[in-house]
Every structure is written in structure tokens, then in C-alpha cells.
Design a binder for these strands. Structure first.
Length: 606
RNA sequence: GGGACCGUAGUUCAACUGGUUAGAGCACCGCCCUGUCACGGCGGAAGUUGCGGGUUCGAAUCCCGUCGGUCCCGCCA
């Protein structure tokens, strides 16, 4: 249907007869001559329609609306010198139309303009309802290309490294740990249900037992939890697993993979190896396990300084088993007013949202003088002030904000304030937004975390992560006892404050696997029922193995400098997990339910 | 489950403190225009102000409910 693409035409094509297909990007009708910007996925080219070429041709051209699909024949010629458009790559040439064929016309009002020239911010609701039009726009078209390039680069790299892609079931069994499952009723096995996989975790481990040694998959994963700008009910992981690899070997391989992706998609050289931070260090210094290291304002421990303080908020926090930590904001006295850090202020509310009861502050003045509320000032000694200034490296003009209370709340509060202030004071400059890539491995996660609601230990990643061997020792009889305090051979890849991947070495010893399940509250009967096939497999010559999974949607979001993963997915769902275009989910016929042996208990709220 | 913001023409926005015919750009329709490139000029059509109820002499505006969208907490790794 076409001999060349619109965006490919250059002066080298002058004189050639070409046949082009595409959409009318816009039309400039001068009465005597008509210019059509014809667009396909490669770009736009100016088509010139001259009245001398015939009445019919000219009438057809006059009737064209934006987004009409046409095929044109014509000769490429250079533009007059004064009419060269240096803003577009094809701006030195144009095609003189000989024939225009309308392949499809636009008969309804377009909900929004596709042309880059009218790229105004359309309500997302409208974009999602007419997603096919939105995809035709340059922004989404480019994002999908970028996504393709990302995945293609990963495939090429992994192929070179001896990995093969293996598909795993989408219909599988529900597992008790983790997120809520999407369920699929079985027609054949009445009363029983499949679940859609939250990840191919167990299958990829079993592929290792199956001797595949090096597996990957671009895997769709499903989680029936509430949505966020970076969370969709179905999302894509680059899922990787390998046998006979130490943790450092796995990290090294994945650093190369990531460096490759950034190089191929953005032309950016990412320095490897990536820095590593232990989970504990990350929590101490940033209050989170996914720190944004593009700016400072690290958390500073001051519990020992204020343990005996007459300021009760501080001393009680510590005697209650918690801590007092602070962050120093460079020249914060000038940029942040008291109104903002006192009740009702925006920074104070951030602290509140994290669960903090209050937000103590100290303003640093000249000569180690400070300003603060009376209750704190009256209880501060000069040596305490001196030590505080040394630890925080605070200078005159700086503002120090405190979190005091249970350690998890303090960390959460200061993490949140740190991020809020960084954003608010533009500590990440506009150019950094697309150019600064702070990769970081967070390693040595604890195996378990106490869930106070259920009064039991929970696996932090999942129950198949291997503990560090030095933490549990060789003696099997002591594993059960040592496991709760062990760290895992687990790692997360963090980029600019977002987790883009995570993985671990897996347990390949059936006894240890049973022990771990026991620690998180599985009886041996339950363990057998739910994970018997895994434990059996581990008993039949399972190789040491481990792996990682990357969130492709998030990775592409960051590469594309977008704020939502919806802009990296062709057909995403809304926050209510609806597809506005296909109108899914939708009702089904009763007959279908009967076949599936299920009945709805849903009552329409009226 | 909870909190915040939003919903006006196909679309992006406007409409003062509640005030009389709800405006403008783009798109659409018609006419004019031979070198534009976000072409230009003249004219036109286009609205159940998401939906339902209430307050009021009077509601796009205030109140309640509801539907839809976004962000966040819970939830989720």
C-alpha cells in the first residue's frame, strides 16, 4: 500500500514517485493551494495539492478532516528556500500530490486532537475511553515503543547469557500468603477455583528443579488489591531465575542487564556495580527500604543525646522503647516558616499522615545559638546543642526537624518529610528528573516481620527466600530457633526512591523450607496441602537457585519520565479497576454462572 | 473501608459574594484566501452545568445523596 513512510523522506528522495499512507494531521487550505500534513508512526510530511493537477483531486483535498486515513501518490520535490521548515526532520521536502484516495473518513466529532500541535492535557477519563485515539498520539506511541525496546533489550541480553523464555500457567492454585487472588471458577471441577498468579514464583523454582538452569519470562501477574498510580491489577514482570549462582553473581548479571537497557533505550551509560546498602543501614539513614539517594537530608540518630532530656516528648519516646531522630534542612530557616511546621501546616500534616503526634524543630542561628519552643530550649544544654550540630553537620540558617516515638513511626515520618521537602524545595532539579539515575541495591532484608493484627511472623518477601547461612548455622536442630532473627539472602533494586525489582536466593533444602513455613504459622499438614509439591521437588535433587523480578511497567515509567504506569500500558484500568473502553468488568448471563456452579450474592445498593 | 480534590458545548477552560440570554480557544459546518506549517479572515451551529433531591424569589455556584475520574491512607512488594 505504500512505498515509504512519511517520516523517512529527505532530500535524497527528491524526484522519486512515492506512495504514502497515513492520517491527516492537519490541513492548511489557502484556497489556491492546500497543504496536508500527513502522519504515520514515523513522523509527518507536507503534501502539497496544486489546483493545476485537476479539479477532483483538489475537491478531495478540500474535503479532508483531521484524522482521515488517506493514501497519496506523488513526486517528492524540494521546497522553495523560503518555505523550508527547520522544525521538522522532513522540512526540506514535500510531496506534490497526483492522486489522493480516502481509505477511511472521520464521520464523528473527535473527542480530542491527535496532533502533537494540539497536545493539551486531556482528562484521563476521556483518554481511557478512547484509548485507541490516545495511543495514536505521539506521547503514548513513543511510550509503547520504549516499552518494546526495553523488553527487547532484556530478551537479547538474557538470550546471550544462555537464558530461555518459558511460559508458566495463568490458571493456577490460590496461595494463602501475599495479596488477594483473582479467582476463576472451574466449570469442569465444580466447586473448585483457579487463581491467577501473583507471580510465577513457584513455577520458576520448579523449572530450576527441572534443570532449565536459566529461565526468564515476560510474565503477566495479577493482584486483586486497591490501585495506585504505580499499581495495576494486572502488571508485567521480567521474571528471572537461575541455578548455581551466588548472590553477588546474580547481582552482577542483573547490573549488566540494567546497564544494557538504559544504554539501548536512552543512550545512557549507567556506572556499575551499583552501590549496596543493607536493609538496616537503609532504615537507619533514610527510614525506608527504598531510599531516594538523589539528595541528602539523611536521618540522624539522637536518642542517646536526649535519653535523659527534661523535654518529656523526647525522653519518654526513648524510655518507651522508641527513638529520637532528626533531619537537617539546608538553609531551612529561610525556606520553611513556622506556620508550615506547626499544627495545621503542610509539613506538620505530612508528619501526622505518617502517624506522628507532633513535629519538634530547632532553628540553627549563628555561634551555636538555636531557636525553638520553650519546652525544648529550656532543656537543652550547650554541649547537647554542640553535639547535635556536629552530628547533623548543621550550619547557621539550617532547620532541624525531629521525630520522636516508636522507631517505625519515626522512620516513616522522617522519610515522608524528607521526600515532601525535597519535592517542595525542588532539591531534585528539572534536569535531574530525566538524567539522574541513582541505582542502589538494598540487601540483607530480615526474613520475617511481626504482624500485630494476626499476632504472627510474616515473610517479608515470600516464604521461599533463603536465610543467610551464617545466621542459621549448620545444625538443623537449631534452625527453627534461629530463623525468626535471621536475615534473608534477599535484595531489592531501588531507583530514585522506587523499587523496580527484587529477588532472593531460594531455599533448596526441604527441611529448611518446612521450618520456614512453620515459623510463619503453617502446621505441617497445611504446609503439605499447600506446598507439598514444592517440598517434594526440593527432595528430588533441587539445585541451589535464585532469581529476581523487575517491574516492567515501573521501569518504563521511569525511562519515559511519566508519573503513572498507566501511561506505559496500552489498555490500563482505572482506580476502580475498570476498563473504560471495553467496559469491563460487566454482567454475565445467568446461564454462564450456572455452568460454573456459582451464584452471585451481590445486591445492587439502591 | 477511610480522607482530599475534580466533573460546565466534541474538547480545554471561564462565568465576581447565589442574580436575570452560561462565555472563549481548538474541533465541527458554511463562505473567502496560491507557500503555509499551531496559516489567516468573515459567519454559523453546538449546553438537561455528571445524575437525583433539598435550601432560596432565584442554583453551574450553597447543602445532602449518588455515579464517574485522580491522588493518598489502609491494603499491596
Amino acid at each position: 500500500m505504500r512505498s515509504i513512510c512519511c517520516g523517512e523522506l529527505r532530500t535524497s528522495a527528491i524526484g522519486a514517485n512515492v506512495q504514502l499512507c497515513g492520517w491527516v494531521d492537519r490541513l492548511r487550505d489557502h484556497g489556491g493551494v492546500i497543504f496536508i500534513d500527513l502522519r504515520d508512526r514515523t513522523g509527518t510530511i507536507q503534501i502539497t495539492v496544486d489546483p493545476d493537477k485537476g479539479k477532483d483531486l483538489f475537491n478531495t483535498a478540500e474535503s479532508l478532516r483531521n484524522e482521515t486515513v488517506i493514501q497519496i501518490n506523488g513526486k517528492v520535490r524540494s521546497r522553495p528556500d523560503e518555505a523550508i521548515n527547520s522544525k521538522i526532520p522532513t522540512g526540506e521536502v514535500e510531496v506534490l500530490a497526483e492522486r489522493i484516495k480516502i481509505l477511511n473518513s472521520v464521520t464523528t466529532n473527535l473527542p480530542f486532537s491527535v496532533s502533537i500541535h494540539d497536545e493539551e492535557s486531556i482528562k484521563e477519563e476521556i483518554r481511557l475511553r478512547y484509548r485507541y485515539l490516545d495511543l495514536r498520539r505521539e506521547r503514548m506511541n513513543n511510550n509503547l515503543k520504549l516499552r518494546h525496546d526495553t523488553v527487547k533489550t532484556a530478551r537479547n541480553f538474557l538470550e546471550e547469557e544462555g537464558f530461555i523464555e518459558v511460559e508458566t500457567p495463568v490458571l493456577t492454585r490460590s496461595t494463602p500468603e501475599g495479596a488477594r487472588d483473582y479467582l476463576v471458577p472451574s466449570r469442569v471441577c465444580g466447586g473448585e477455583y483457579f487463581a491467577l498468579p501473583q507471580s510465577p514464583q513457584l513455577f520458576k523454582q520448579l523449572l530450576m528443579v527441572g534443570g532449565i538452569e536459566r529461565y526468564y519470562q515476560v510474565a503477566r501477574c495479577f493482584r486483586d488489591e486497591d490501585l495506585r498510580s504505580d499499581r495495576q491489577p494486572e502488571f508485567t514482570q521480567l521474571d528471572i531465575e537461575m541455578s548455581f549462582m551466588e548472590q553477588n553473581e546474580i547481582l552482577e548479571l542483573n547490573e549488566k542487564l540494567i546497564a544494557n537497557i538504559w544504554k539501548k533505550t536512552k543512550g545512557i551509560d549507567i556506572p556499575i556495580p551499583f552501590p549496596k546498602l543493607t536493609w538496616k543501614e537503609s532504615m537507619d539513614r533514610y527510614g525506608t527500604d527504598r531510599p531516594d539517594t538523589r539528595y541528602g537530608m539523611e536521618l540522624v540518630e539522637t536518642s542517646d543525646l536526649f535519653a535523659q532530656s527534661g523535654f518529656k516528648v523526647f525522653s519518654k519516646a526513648i524510655s518507651g522503647g522508641g527513638c529520637v531522630k532528626c533531619i537537617a534542612i539546608d538553609q531551612g530557616n529561610a525556606s520553611i516558616s513556622n506556620v508550615r511546621i506547626k499544627p495545621g501546616g503542610d509539613i506538620f500534616s505530612e508528619a501526622q499522615k505518617a502517624g506522628a503526634g507532633g513535629l519538634a524543630f530547632i532553628r540553627v542561628r549563628e555561634n551555636e545559638e538555636v531557636d525553638t519552643i520553650g519546652a525544648i530550649k529550656d532543656n537543652l544544654t550547650t554541649s547537647q546543642i554542640h553535639e547535635l550540630l556536629v552530628r547533623t553537620s548543621a550550619k547557621p540558617g539550617d532547620l532541624i526537624l525531629f521525630g520522636a516515638g516508636p522507631t517505625d513511626i519515626v522512620n516513616k515520618t522522617l522519610d515522608r518529610i524528607r521526600q515532601f521537602i525535597a519535592k517542595n524545595l525542588n532539591l531534585i532539579s528539572e534536569s535531574d528528573l530525566s538524567n539522574k539515575w541513582n541505582f542502589l541495591w538494598v540487601v540483607d532484608f530480615p526474613m520475617f516481620e511481626f504482624n500485630s493484627d494476626e499476632n504472627r511472623l510474616e515473610a517479608i518477601h515470600h516464604p521461599f527466600c533463603a536465610p543467610k547461612t551464617e545466621d542459621i548455622g549448620e545444625a538443623k536442630s537449631l534452625w527453627q530457633e534461629k530463623l525468626p532473627n535471621a536475615n534473608a539472602q534477599a535484595y531489592d533494586l531501588v531507583l530514585n526512591g522506587l523499587e523496580i525489582g527484587g529477588g532472593s536466593l531460594r531455599i533448596h533444602n526441604p527441611e529448611l523450607q518446612k521450618n520456614v513455613l512453620e515459623v510463619i504459622g503453617f502446621s505441617s499438614k497445611e504446609a503439605e496441602e499447600q506446598f507439598g509439591f514444592l517440598i517434594d521437588a526440593l527432595s528430588m535433587g533441587a539445585p541451589p537457585h535464585g532469581g529476581i523480578a523487575f517491574g516492567i511497567d515501573r521501569m518504563v515509567m521511569l525511562l519515559a519520565n511519566e508519573d503513572s504506569i498507566r501511561d506505559t500500558i496500552a489498555f490500563p484500568k482505572t482506580q476502580q479497576a475498570r476498563c473504560l473502553m471495553a467496559q469491563a468488568p460487566a454482567n454475565v448471563q445467568n446461564k454462564q454462572l450456572e455452568e460454573l456452579h456459582i451464584a452471585s450474592t451481590w445486591v445492587d445498593p439502591e
